[in-house]
Computed example of a mutant assay.
Amino acid sequence: MPAADGFDHEVRGSEVVITHHGRRATVLRGAAAARFLADLDDGADEQELSARLTGNYRRGNERTARDHPRNRGR
């Protein structure tokens, strides 16, 4: 699986804005924002954590799903 890259975050008051290649991907507020910042302070990889939170990561099954009989003809 390719490594996540291109994510950045900015703290705006009580919100955390996560961008991907300069475009806003998500905004975390309240407890989610606090948990995100705490995880970063604990040494979590920002790229992987951001990818997980935004849902922007590859799962490795794209080709398998495309070839499934119910998805043929789409």
Rank of each mutant, 00 (worst) to 15 (best):
L53C: 01
D42N: 14
E48A: 15
D45K: 12
E15C: 11
A4H: 02
A31T: 12
V11P: 09
E48C: 09
R63I: 14
Q47T: 09
A31V: 14
E48W: 10
G60F: 05
L40Y: 00
T54Y: 00
L28F: 04
A44K: 13
H20C: 12
D45L: 13
G30R: 11
A38F: 02
R29E: 10
Y57P: 02
A33P: 05
R29A: 13
G13A: 06
R29Y: 03
D5S: 12
T19C: 12
E48V: 14
D42V: 05
R66L: 14
A33F: 01
H9P: 01
A25T: 06
E62Y: 08
L28I: 06
F7R: 06
L40F: 02
A65R: 15
Y57H: 10
F7V: 04
F36P: 00
A34E: 09
R24D: 03
A65M: 14
R58D: 10
A3P: 03
T26D: 07
E15V: 05
F36Q: 00
R59K: 11
A33E: 00
G6F: 04
H9T: 01
A4I: 01
A4S: 11
G22F: 05
A34D: 12
R63G: 11
R24S: 07
F7A: 02
G30L: 04
V17L: 14
G6T: 05
G60T: 02
G43R: 15
R59I: 08
A4W: 01
R59W: 07
G22A: 10
D41W: 03
N56Q: 15
R52F: 07
R23E: 15
S50T: 05
S14C: 06
H68C: 02
H20Q: 13
V17W: 14
D45A: 15
H21M: 11
L40A: 00
H9Y: 09
A51F: 01
S50F: 03
A32L: 07
D39L: 12
D8I: 12
D42L: 11
D41M: 08
E62H: 10
A65C: 11
P2D: 01
V11S: 09
I18V: 12
S50P: 08
A3I: 04
R63S: 14
R12H: 13
A32W: 01
